[in-house]
């Protein structure tokens, strides 16, 4: 695992990709931070939450090549024919991507220090937002890994990852849309309006139960819950397992 981790992590810095992604992140976070400074009110947790909306761009860039490149260049043979397990491979690559995201996030830690230096407040809510950031990143990177294992084209894998994250970011919107549209359809079908609304919102509840953003929103207010983190982590594990299975499939697939 360390072997894979080391290679993948360093490879971000052997190519311009790693630097460019970090530069992008630094710039965006810097703009948010400076903007708050100018308003004489710095809420780091808000900055972190705004930065989360860039997962949809950053995560695909980071994960797109993880598995698809190996498949395309034929280097995946190394993983299958050396005395390591596929678990090591998946875990190593996942951790490498996570570490890159951590490196990016150092920017925000610096912002926290600067905020302190300016006499601002860095409280539990800010650390809560940071924790959530990493757990959400873990979930999305796991999804990115899976997308990358599905195909041997970096572009397609990046697109798939983008779509996955888009769907997750839209879950709440989708849920409320579904809620109103389903209930109005049911009302048109002469179902009692309260029952129709109950059905619609029940459906919406099920969908928004899956929304990691909603689950973790209390962290920003300083309420730390284990359950939301467990949700992100277990979903990440699930997607990593799917990735693992996709790689294993290559062995026994008869196509």
């Amino acid at each position: 695992m360390t072997a894979i981790f080391k290679r993948e992590f360093l490879s971000f810095f052997r190519n311009p990709v790693g630097y460019v992604v970090i530069a992008l992140f630094s710039f965006i976070s810097g703009v948010y931070f400076v903007n708050m400074l100018m308003n004489i009110s710095v809420d780091i947790s808000l900055e972190i939450i705004s930065l989360r909306s860039f997962f949809i761009i950053i995560v695909p860039i980071v994960t797109m090549g993880l598995f698809s490149e190996d498949r395309k260049k034929g280097t995946e043979v190394l993983y299958y024919t050396n005395p390591i397990t596929m678990f090591d491979v998946v875990a190593g690559k996942f951790l490498a991507a996570m570490s890159l995201i951590f490196v990016m996030f150092i920017n925000v830690f610096i912002h926290m220090i600067v905020t302190k230096a300016f006499g601002g407040v860095v409280g539990a809510g800010d650390f809560g937002a940071a924790i959530v950031f990493f757990f959400l990143a873990a979930l999305f990177v796991a999804i990115g890994c899976f997308a990358s294992a599905l195909t041997d084209s970096q572009i397609i894998s990046a697109l798939l990852c983008f779509l996955f994250i888009l769907v997750i970011q839209m879950l709440s919107t989708f849920a409320s849309f579904l809620n109103s549209s389903v209930s109005s359809v049911l009302i048109l079908m002469n179902v009692d309006s309260e029952k129709a609304n109950a059905f619609g919102s029940g459906l919406a509840d099920v969908i928004s139960w899956l929304d990691p953003f909603v689950k973790t929103q209390r962290f920003r207010f300083g309420v730390f819950g284990v359950a939301p983190l467990f949700f992100c982590l277990s979903m990440a594990v699930f997607f990593l397992y799917l990735t693992f299975r996709m790689l294993e499939k290559k062995r026994w697939s008869q196509r």
Partner: peptide, 16 residues
Amino acid sequence: LGGPLTFDFSATHKNS
């Protein structure tokens, strides 16, 4: 466990 394993670390304990 959602309830018991939720902790309020906010400075003002505004959530608890």
